[in-house]
Design a binder for these strands. Structure first.
Lengths: 293, 293
DNA sequence: CGCCTCACATGAGGATCGCTCATGACCGCA
DNA sequence: TGCGGTCATGAGCGATCCTCATGTGAGGCG
């Protein structure tokens, strides 16, 4: 009747993998073992933690247990990986969360670097939106994250990412060395959702221009397609340039606003040894990516 | 060879209780079981985590493992206690850290209140100094703490504690309704260590008087004895009044400075359910203790 | 309506684990 | 050298946990 790490691991894995069978695979045990483990957990706790539909969801009670379960599992994993360090090089496998633009613009280079520096560390990438990512980091869903303008704390600034106007290549301003936010008022404005609103609002405030986006678009591909089609213009961080399709240009804004991208581990929790190593290594280096456009 | 919660529990308990035998007692298992558990942990991890002298200390490696072990154990305990909630009332046993003055001035009342409100929750009190306490909260040594003027975050302000002059009863200023910090310059100043220096320094800054303490004293009893003996005067928060011995008085200062006492759980970690309940209950109440002197 | 399939539960059996008891080894101390 | 305190070790046994095989229940389809 006593709580057990493998029970917690099973519980977490079922939710993360979306089923008992899938959990069994990633845990390298049989489906039956997972079922037994979750059943034992529920017997031990006295109530169900999972609804048994496809895909399994946590019960209200399971929802409350989950963050603690994640914390326990993460701690155990960290200890295991701490022990697996060889010749000072950390090992283990990390889950990393980052916003879309960072995933596309910054991480390819970074992760290549890490693979070279920390060959025994595996990194699984989770793409998300800013607040979502902070939540994942807090509740143990991920071990490592790139946060946008986080409150001061541990972690290392890996880039300062300046905002640019996104214009069709045949736009009158497309050839300028820099444009004023106020000059964008002639076109419809396409606001990209997902965390940059705050900065864009600030840009308009500084420019003294009322902010009145015509469309709000979540998907970056859609946004670019619409700008290319001449429907309007947008403002994006420089890193989004990595996703640029032909016949689109990014022009620096006169109103110089940047977002700070910070690589950090879970606040409060002890960090996974590999996370500490990676963040320390990033601190020792200069910013990897010049915020060019 | 697989990591195990009872192994981690044993490891943590040996350090906390100062020995294998003592750990065995608190865990309600045999000394042999503790020895086996730690041995298995070390076999599993591939290196020693404890030095086997009296009292056992963590090895360098053990030092790195310890915070993760605490996190795992705390998480498991929280889950257990989450399950033990009956009719909405939380249960379990909490470790609470607080500074000396709070322990003596504020907690007796608070803990009585809690005993009534949360009869199934046990609280063990750890007295410490301000930074020490913040450290304990961060690394999982305690579940709940009273912090002094912490950075903004979750938690509830349970008191605003105003600073007072501590004078012998026969001091010329002892009868005044309030005194100016500048007027204390005639006497030797006895600085009490342990976290209030910052505030006292600020008081002197505001009064425009140079700060030049004659003695620095750690123990509150010693301080009071010395003030009573006429060796000098001091400045203490109102809560220290709970420790006042006869022939001493506390007089409010004209320079009104207070310290904010905040009851909170570990930053970042998910909180123990009973901690959440206690902090929530405290938020719902007005400040318990008027900062009287 | 019956059958199939997918997904999870259940039961039996066997290896492993983790505990206790008894005892051994080591250290500081007189 | 002997003694008490502290931790380690080994044997033995019950509990646990995993796997294999099979049961059950929901949903899709002819």
């Amino acid at each position: 009747m006593n709580l057990n790490l493998s029970q917690l691991r099973a519980f977490v894995a079922v939710l993360d993998e979306g089923g008992f069978g899938a959990a069994a695979e990633t845990l390298h045990i049989s489906q039956s073992a997972v079922s037994h483990a979750v059943a034992a957990l529920e017997r031990g706790l006295g109530s169900a933690v999972l609804t048994r539909q496809a895909p399994p969801r946590p019960t209200a009670f399971g929802e409350r247990v989950l963050p603690h379960a994640r914390a326990a599992v993460a701690a155990a994993t960290a200890i295991r990986d701490l022990a697996d360090e060889r010749d000072g090089r950390p090992g283990g496998s990390l889950r990393l969360a980052a916003p879309t633009t960072v995933c596309q613009g910054l991480l390819p280079g970074l992760m290549t670097q890490w693979r070279a520096d920390f060959p025994r560390v595996g990194v699984t990438l989770f793409e998300g939106e800013d607040e979502e990512i902070a939540g994942w980091l807090g509740d143990g869903t991920v071990d490592l994250a790139v946060l946008v303008d986080p409150p001061p704390g541990p972690g290392v600034t890996i880039a300062r990412d300046r905002f640019h106007a996104l214009l069709p290549a045949d736009h009158p301003l497309a050839g300028e060395p820099a444009v004023d936010v106020a000059d964008l008022a002639d076109d419809a404005f396409l606001l990209s959702l997902g965390g940059c609103e705050r900065h864009i609002r600030e840009l308009y405030r500084r420019a003294g221009v009322p902010f009145d986006p015509t469309h709000r678009i979540r998907d970056m591909g859609t946004l670019m397609a619409m700008v290319r089609a001449g429907i309007g213009v947008s403002i994006l961080p420089a890193l989004a340039g990595a996703m640029l399709v032909p016949r689109l240009v990014m022009v620096p804004l006169i109103q110089e606003i940047t977002r700070r991208l910070v690589l950090t581990g879970p606040p409060g929790h002890p960090w996974h040894p590999a996370v500490t190593a990676i963040v320390d290594a990033a601190s020792a280096r200069p910013d990897h990516v010049p915020p060019g456009g």
